[in-house]
Design a protein around this nucleic acid. Structure first.
Length: 424
RNA sequence: GGAGAGGUGGCCGAGUGGCUUAAGGCGCACGCUUGGAAAGCGUGUUUAGGAGAAAUCUUAACAAGGGUUCGAAUCCCUUUCUCUCCGCCA
């Protein structure tokens, strides 16, 4: 959520940014926000005045009672009736305006960074980096879901039986490979200075609001109705919410955390060839990195995160590319996002395996995550996060790209975690 | 799940309707004192909103939300969390 002070003072900049996202009705909503904000402040001032008057009289009544002048006190009591009605009305008006104002405010997405290219679809994303050679596979090369079956390492049908579509069962070397990837990713992140966290996998409404999943995107999460909790769609939610309602000191920066968690996504609809196998699941594993940064450093931090993930992909020997997302493809809360895609050779398509974003102060404002700056004033911090990495598509890439006629080879960096060098 | 007790500032802790403008202590900051330090003494020490060029003024906040009252940390209701005992349990 953008701050009202920012919206008031940077209307043109805001409209320009929203245009880049093809955000409809921007001017109407922004004008309405500005108008309601001004109305809210006037109402607040009026209410304060009534309350101040009322407080004053109450004190006088107290004094009269104490000095035994009961009649005077009772006379004054009558005077407060009118003030009470007034303050009640003003208070209701204020609540109503604040509610309307917030509803409008929640609709406004973050402003894209100037680096974000204009555009409306995936096609307009900008490819900024590409590395790794696409392997030449033998003629009988298979897509990963066939390989999974052939070597009996992932069982999709079994998942259907136990739960439903999108909940695969990993078996034998498949399960071990998953565990190896998690250990490898966490180890790399720890080595790079990230603190390992094991967060809860269920979150409450306040946490969902803090990172921007609620109130609008609740349909994407699994909801446990009886306790009103949500299964996390990503570790970003619990790990970032560690810092909800927190006032940091400048010397606390940078805060770097990493967490492995399963992630749960409802993502109703869309079944078919492009979501086959591991391409899109309801439950999947992911290792996440989250940073809380001083506003002056957040873009440098974003670059560091990108470099970090590049190194991991390079070590895994997977061909990948980095996209800078265009305005239309950018997430609601993000100011700048880099997507990493791995090439799936058997499917002949790119698969998104990481998304690294700077949210600037958009989440921090919702989270009330601030720090004391050098002037001693509290200021919103910047939040960032990225995957390092999402497992299923990395696994898909590994299976397809490392398949040989003898079996699936395991990249060297993983072998110390798997304990084997081939799946056959 | 059942019964009971609780939630007060950065921390500890008093506070059963009006000198609470939240006592007292600890911590922290600054000053005095000192050769220097400690101790001592003094001053200050929350967050958010509104008005103002600023000094400053003002409103709100004692777990959260409602209510009673001229007036609520204090009384009532709901929710939530913590602790103790019992039950269940990896």
């Amino acid at each position: 959520m953008l701050s009202l002070a920012f919206i008031r003072e940077n209307k043109e900049l805001l409209l320009k940014g929203l245009a880049k996202r093809n955000f409809k009705d921007a001017e109407r909503i922004v004008d309405e926000v500005i108008e309601k904000d001004s109305l809210r402040r006037n109402t607040q001032a009026a209410l304060d005045q009534v309350l101040a008057e009322s407080n004053k009289i109450s004190k006088e009544i107290g004094n009269f009672f104490k000095s035994g002048e009961v009649q005077k006190a009772n006379l004054l009591k009558e005077k407060t009736g009118q003030l009470k009605i007034q303050s009640k009305e003003l208070n209701e008006k204020l609540n109503q305006i604040s509610k309307e104002l917030n509803e409008l405010l929640y609709q406004i997405p973050n402003i894209p960074n100037e680096l974000v290219p204009a555009g409306s679809t995936e096609e307009d994303n900008e490819i900024i980096f590409e590395e790794g050679e696409i392997p030449k596979l033998h003629e009988s090369a298979l897509p990963h879901w066939e390989l999974a079956k052939k070597y009996d390492i992932i069982d999709f049908e079994l998942g259907n039986k136990i739960t439903g579509a999108g909940f695969p069962v990993y078996k034998g070397k498949g399960a071990k490979l998953q565990r190896a990837l998690i250990s490898y990713f966490l180890e790399k992140n720890s080595d790079a200075g990230y603190t390992e966290i094991q967060p809860p996998l269920l979150i409450n409404e306040a946490s969902g609001f803090g990172t921007g999943q609620l109130p609008d995107k609740e349909g994407q999460m699994y909801h446990v109705g009886i306790d009103n909790l949500f299964l996390i769609p990503t570790a970003e939610v619990p790990v970032t919410n560690i810092y909800r309602d927190v006032l940091l000191k400048e010397e606390d920066f940078p805060i770097c955390n990493t967490a492995y968690t399963p992630c749960f996504r409802r993502e109703a609809g869309s079944y078919g060839a492009h979501v086959r196998g591991l391409n899109r699941l309801h439950q999947f594993d992911k290792v996440e990195i989250v940073r809380i940064e001083h506003p002056d450093n957040s873009y440098a931090a974003l670059d560091k995160m990108v470099e970090h993930v590049k190194e991991i992909l390079k070590e895994l020997g997977l061909p990948y590319r980095i996209l800078r997302l265009c305005g239309g493809d950018l997430g609601f809360t993000s100011a700048l996002t880099y997507d990493f895609e791995v090439y799936s050779t058997a499917q002949k398509r790119w698969l998104e395996i990481s998304s690294i974003s700077n949210f600037e102060s958009f989440q921090a404002n919702r989270l009330k995550l601030r720090f004391k700056n050098k002037e001693g004033k509290s200021q919103l911090a910047h939040t960032l996060n990225g995957s390092s990495l999402a497992l299923p598509r990395v696994l898909a890439g590994l299976l397809e790209n490392y398949q040989t006629e003898k079996g699936i080879k395991i990249p060297e960096v993983l072998q110390k975690y798997t304990g084997f060098d081939i799946i056959d």
